[in-house]
């Protein structure tokens, strides 16, 4: 995957770059409007992370520029302002998704994976994701292991996809809770119910003959090892 990170906050930009690097991804960065404009006009990316507030210009204009030139790069807007106007404007102009700061890197990755998957699916028509013996039909939301159906609840399915998108990374419980119940939901009690979901997924995958992919990581999160 080739990703362009347009973000003026150095620290955040480096975090994102660090998180995406190393698993076959190529990351490029731009910290201001003119650099970003130059890059989007010179190169093509699988996904562009676009911060709206940039020194030297508005990120929305970059989005317009991309669309005017009929570039089909996936675009994920990341903004500090949880404003519905921004969100609607961005999506209306053709952005693929919108993520509000602060976010978990695992959430960002899950969104980007979804965008790029959608792009490739539109290209060739096959929409089945295969991880070793597990195959997931993203359209029908069905999971199979060696042609045997694995019945997952909607939340378990969402969680499995989330893990797969963040394969090899430790995903914190907080990130999982936010992904499953939304960030508007103020649950700060113990995340016991996450454990129950994880346990179910592992059980169901193993019963269908899959390997045990999900491991707990020091009590603070889980990791999908593929």
């Amino acid at each position: 995957m080739k990703i362009l990170i347009i973000e003026d906050e150095q620290s955040l930009r480096e975090s994102i770059e660090e998180y995406f690097k190393g698993t076959g991804n190529i990351c490029e960065t731009a910290s201001d409007y003119s650099t970003a404009l130059e890059k989007i006009n010179l190169y093509r990316y699988d996904c562009i992370l676009l911060d709206i507030t940039l020194p030297g210009g508005n990120g929305i204009n970059l989005l317009k520029n991309l669309k005017e030139n009929n570039h089909s790069d996936g675009i994920l807007i990341i903004s500090a302002r949880n404003s519905l106007d921004d969100r609607l404007e961005g999506l209306d102009l053709g952005a693929d998704d919108y993520l509000v700061k602060p976010f978990h890197l695992s959430e960002l990755r899950s969104r980007i994976t979804a965008i790029t998957r959608r792009k490739t699916f539109n290209g060739n028509g096959s929409n089945v994701l295969t991880i070793n013996e597990i195959s997931i039909d993203l359209t029908g939301k069905e999971v199979k292991i060696k042609n045997q159906d694995v019945k997952l609840t909607p939340k378990e399915y969402a969680l499995l996809l989330y893990f797969i998108a963040n394969k090899g990374k430790v995903v914190s419980k907080n990130a999982i809770a936010e992904h499953l119940w939304g960030d508007g939901v103020d649950i700060t009690d113990d995340f016991n119910f996450i454990y129950a979901h994880i346990k179910n997924i592992r059980k169901k995958l193993m019963e269908a003959g899959g390997k045990d992919y999900i491991r707990a990581a020091y009590g603070m999160g889980y990791k999908f090892t593929g």
Binding site: E9, S11, L12, S15, I16, E18, Y19, A80, K101, P102, F103, H104, L105, S106, K169, V170, S172, A175, A217, Y218, G219, M220, G221
Partner: peptide, 25 residues
């Protein structure tokens, strides 16, 4: 928002380094 985003992302990175004791976890 920005410093929170930074702390959040750095924590996400930190837990990837993986050589933690239970106590650190």
């Amino acid at each position: 928002n920005t410093p929170i985003a930074i702390i959040n992302s750095k924590l996400d990175l930190l837990i990837q380094t993986e050589n933690f004791s239970e106590w650190q976890g």
